[in-house]
């Protein structure tokens, strides 16, 4: 089975999906990312989907799940590079990807993450009731 590589750049994990993923590959990516977030202590994840010519409900759901998992692990996810035809199709399919941050490209995605990090400082304004939930300890980078 193919695997989507996860690259660490500074405080950010970068994933660029370059293949037409089997469902199993998407699920593997979800697991790999969760592990890498904990292992590296990264606070941002950028998923570049500019090479994808479709995003169906399965991949859409996987992206939403990745965003939710990383949030619980103190990392923000930004999905970048969605093609216009993919955006049109996704919305018509009924998937508007609520809860997912997006940016037009990797650079803007990095800006977005950097800005958020500055705005929030270290006191995360989490009001989603997850405080106290058991999350794995994040080792220092």
């Amino acid at each position: 089975m193919e695997r989507v590589p996860v690259l660490k750049i500074g405080d950010i994990l970068l994933v660029s999906i370059q293949i037409d993923m089997e469902d199993q590959v998407a699920l593997q990516l979800q697991e790999d990312l969760a592990e890498r977030i904990v292992a590296t202590g990264c606070h941002g994840v950028i998923i570049d989907i500019s090479a994808l010519d479709i995003v169906d409900s399965f991949v859409g759901r996987t992206l939403a799940t990745i965003a939710a998992i990383s949030r619980v692990l103190d990392a923000e996810t930004v999905v970048v590079g969605m093609r216009p035809a993919v955006a049109i199709t996704l919305v018509e399919l009924g998937l508007s990807l609520p809860g997912i941050r997006t940016a037009l490209n990797v650079e803007l995605g990095m800006d977005l993450l950097a800005r958020e990090r500055e705005d929030n400082g270290d006191d995360d304004e989490e009001t989603n009731g997850l405080e106290g939930a058991e999350t794995p300890a994040v080792p220092a980078p």
Partner: peptide
Amino acid sequence: QTKIVTAASE
């Protein structure tokens, strides 16, 4: 193209 490929995938 994008719509029909997406529908086919579903």
